[in-house]
Design a protein around this nucleic acid. Structure first.
Lengths: 201, 201, 201, 201
DNA sequence: TTTTAATCGAGACGGTACGTCTCGTCTTAAA
DNA sequence: TTTAAGACGAGACGTACCGTCTCGATTAAAA
């Protein structure tokens, strides 16, 4: 979120003394994303991003500690925009809709590819794991948890239901299928919701 | 294709004239595993394996196309030995036992660490993904599927149950928790089995 | 000659934008030379030069296509400095002095060792032979030839004397002795000049 | 081919149980020579010789300490056969004939190529230098010296003539031209003999 | 209007690991 | 016992990126 803080503080003070080049920032995020899609994670190199974005390596290192952070910037922005946690309506329906959107995000969205790549990289590198939790998994989980808690509070879900257990039981299979390259069909998602959320249905 | 001739003559004559050095093989598998545990996936380099195993790089490249294959060798051997698919008894109990063993394998076994690392690397590299399916995921899934099919055939599980959907719903949450560094407790596993396998309970 | 072009353009523009590190250059030339003297041509490896010069291999490959070019750089610089072709005075005396200097250069100077090593390597490798001609033998021969031509023009040497034949007859024995590890004494050089250059004496 | 020939001749002779195989020896010498001509010194590898001669590497290492010794074997045999030191007749004529033969040997004979390659390698490696002297240069020089000494003894050459100086003055230019890829014409050789051996002509 | 300070592109640098190559030694089984 | 076959430890090759660093040049605020 360093990026945003900088932008914010700049805006707050009403001036941009030695201002960051927004064009360069977007070119870098875009180049990293494109390289990931075109060549896979191994093809995402700082050297390659710099070349494609028409930017010097130093400009990248000035603003991001590593290429992981670049990908995380895109993931967070895109997931916030395209994978919203619903806030109104019946909770079970909201969850079903959210999980369908998650399946679509993982299968069809470039940022979904980033999510899988970062989850993969987190297995190799503790620092990536920490950042990934801090900037993506944990904030999102907080909002997902709030949704389920509302369902419990409103009596739509059983009082004894453990939100995190439930969320992992719902999200886990979808992500696992994405990780193993298996199609995540709508019936698969729906059956999951039926079994996990409505066991006495 | 001298190689094939050799293999052929070996098979034909039932002997192995220029036999592979088993000590070196074990030293290499062991070194790769140790490096993964000690330094993470990034610390597993062919150079490092060679140094630790007291072996030349050429000996590694002679027998394994890549370091992925080295890790897969260990994973397959260890999983076959320590993560057996049960073949007798009540199917639901067998599945529960298998999933508990899986949780333990992922949390405590060096080979479990390999499994997570390879699943991670599969997100970065299509060739790894293919190898991982071919040598680990697919053969194992075949045996897991057979277990559930027996449950259906014997009437213990509902006739309409889809084995692959069910298996992903069971394994997915456990693996997802392991991937995100969350503890996989025994109650978590048991609750999963209860909800997914006995929804009408 | 890339080296010289760079230096030239730098001088021309009066600045050095992404300037080559002169310290590194000298360390590399020195390390190559030292290794040749200490361990022979086989001991001159890019890896070894890099280690001794405290430089990365990439820095070497950035500026020199091969280790031959490194040795040639030193040879050309040192020969230009310490094995000058005389430009004034009586030609026969000048030649005698030059050949004595050549004998000394081959026997006592580190760069003389390089000359012999490159002449040796030229027997193994056509590219080395071409480079050796282009950067050392041919330019030097041009200046040697000019010296003899002056002698002919000024009447000090017979009009019918063929400069290249004469030069090979003078230089050949000295180089041959150096190549075969035979001492090249001053009387040997003087006798050579007497017989070859003053046959009617 | 070579392999089969060996097998065939062995079969023909019945067998050659525990003695050195002359066919293999010739195949090895021939293969080394061919590789030198076809691919240059760098292309002469023990691995390559073994493959071409249809022989195992071990067989080569059993009989020759290095590939240098293989080439020396060929050089010595061929030079003895095709570059004889004349033993009768007028000494000056004999020397002239010998030097013409030397020029031809260096330019046209495969073994001449070996001579230049070994002289080159002697610049890189002291052991090669020692072997080259011991097996080729020194014995030959002894016979060349004897020829000149006969000329002095018989009064055909001046009493004060130093044989080694003279020989280096004669052979040096021819070898130097060969080493630098310059044509060694018959007039060049003749002029050399005239100037060096008959200075008062 | 001039500083002045942080940006930017370019790219050299010391490193590490890659995957390939050839070396010379060692091991096996057949002839 | 010698052979062909070939596995082995060793180590150099030339390449790709890493992350750091120094240049000029640009540019916009502050002086």
């Amino acid at each position: 979120m360093a990026t945003k803080d900088i932008a914010a503080s700049r805006a707050a003070k009403g001036r941009a003394p030695h201002r960051r080049n927004e064009d360069a920032r977007l070119a870098i995020l875009g180049a990293a994303d494109e390289l990931l899609i075109e060549r896979g994670f191994g093809g995402v190199t700082v050297e390659g991003i710099a070349a494609r974005a028409g930017v010097s390596k130093q400009t990248i290192y000035r603003w991001w500690p590593s290429k992981i952070d670049i990908l995380l910037d895109t993931l967070v922005e895109e997931a916030d925009r395209r994978l919203k946690i619903p806030e109104d309506g019946a909770v079970v329906d909201a969850v079903r809709g959210y999980l369908r959107a998650l399946a679509r995000f993982l299968a069809k969205d470039d940022a979904g590819e980033i999510l899988l790549a970062l989850l993969g990289e987190a297995q190799h590198d503790a620092e990536t794991a920490a950042l990934f939790h801090e900037r993506y998994l944990d904030p999102r989980r907080a909002r997902e948890r709030a949704l389920l808690k509302r369902g419990i509070a409103e009596g739509e879900l059983p009082a004894g239901l453990n939100p995190d257990t439930t969320l992992d039981a719902l999200i886990g299979p979808i992500v696992y299928r994405a990780l193993t390259g298996t199609k995540v069909s709508r019936p698969f998602v729906d059956a999951l919701v039926d079994r996990v959320l409505e066991p006495t249905g």
